[in-house]
Design a protein around this nucleic acid. Structure first.
Length: 342
DNA sequence: TCTGGGGTCCTAGGACCC
DNA sequence: TCTGGGGTCCTAGGACCC
């Protein structure tokens, strides 16, 4: 039996969906983010390839994007519309196999056993045709023997391509790259690894697991070495998985200077979250309050609920108890998150 | 550059108990 | 009067991802 994992990633998803319904935007620098007003606080969710070529990508502050590309088309994030497009795509993927693990709106892993002629590329191209036919959207497909290989392969297939990455080519392709080239390693971990003399993926694969464990802990240490070597579980976890938490947060356009205003926002968010907890049919077991002070210092405070509950009163009270631990200061963001019972 | 909103998982320290 | 080892829970925060 031969086992393959395919990683399907829609190309410039939000921008592509917008171009589909506004064909006149094709070929333009399209920037989707916030409420579409680039003078407000917010960041870019997705930029079209044309915008990326001009220095604007996901995470770029909208105000920066507007300075870099004054004549870009700025559009608001339209969640319901993207969710519908995503559902169409995921349905197309489920026609290929039941083994589908969704990763947000625009990505999924597919588990494929024994493809015809042991030709996973043919399956990948079939996936691309089906997605395009169903949704009008192009995607790239990475092929690997596990999720990690497939996920990284996709980048080499973009846009609209197919790319295979296995143990045979892992070090040829990635060996000399910094560890941050790997899925799960960001800038912070990369810096810590450099302090241990680990500068490349090859170094990481050959690193001493004991040393990694001493620095990163008993779970993360060995995991880092494994992903350096390109090893990962081939299991595709069926989605949707049981959600662990549910929250709402808001960055205010103007900083809140009045502590009573902040308190009122805590209550409002807690009420909203409580409503959604009740709707979810699950119980909350803990409430986490998040406050981002001016200029950008973030603090959290949490309370275990006396018992698992959907009670808005209990959730609000826990949020306020957490709130009472903070000293009054100017605030730019308030968030409330409920952790759900297992 | 002046930094969203939705999440997940892991670590570490202190409290507390046996 | 100076002190163990293990286990679990709670809390805060870090890091990462889409």
């Amino acid at each position: 039996m031969t086992r393959w994992v395919l990683h399907v990633d829609l190309d410039q998803f939000l921008a592509a969906v917008e171009v589909l319904r506004h064909p006149e935007l094709a070929g333009l620098a399209v920037v989707v983010g916030g409420d579409g007003d680039p003078t407000k606080r917010g960041v870019v969710s997705t930029a079209s390839y044309e915008a990326r070529a001009l220095g604007v990508g996901s995470g770029t502050p909208l105000r920066t994007a507007a300075k870099r590309i004054p004549d870009a088309v700025f559009l608001p994030v339209d969640r319901p519309h993207y969710e519908a497009a995503s559902a169409t795509v995921m349905a197309a993927l489920h026609e290929v196999t039941d083994e589908v693990e969704e990763l947000g709106w625009d990505e999924a892993f597919l588990g494929i056993d024994d493809p015809p002629d042991d030709d996973p590329e043919a399956v990948a191209r079939d996936v691309q045709r089906r997605v395009l036919a169903a949704s009008g959207l192009h995607c790239s497909v990475g092929i690997g023997r596990n999720r990690l290989q497939a996920k990284i392969a996709t980048d080499y297939g973009k846009p609209a391509g197919v790319f295979r990455l296995t143990a045979a080519t892992w070090f040829d392709l990635l060996g000399d790259l910094p560890p941050s080239a790997l899925w799960g390693i960001g800038g912070k971990t990369s810096t810590k690894l450099a302090e241990l003399g680990i500068a490349t993926v090859r170094d990481l694969a050959g690193a001493d697991v004991e040393a990694l464990s001493a620095r990163f802990g008993p779970t993360t240490g060995p995991w880092l070495q494994r992903i350096g070597a390109g090893r990962d579980s081939a299991a595709v976890r069926e989605s949707p998985r049981e959600r662990r938490s549910l929250g709402r947060e808001v960055t205010y356009q103007q900083d809140l200077h009045d502590w009573d205003d902040v308190r009122a926002q805590v209550v409002e968010l807690a009420t909203r979250v409580a409503g959604e907890v009740a709707e979810s049919g699950r119980d909350a077991v803990r409430v986490v309050l998040k406050v981002r002070f001016v200029p950008f210092t973030t603090r959290t405070s949490s309370r275990v609920l006396p018992e698992p509950t959907t009670s808005a009163t209990a959730i609000e009270q826990a949020a306020l108890e957490a709130f009472a631990r903070f000293e009054p200061r100017a605030v730019r963001l308030v968030g409330v998150r409920a952790e759900l019972s297992r």
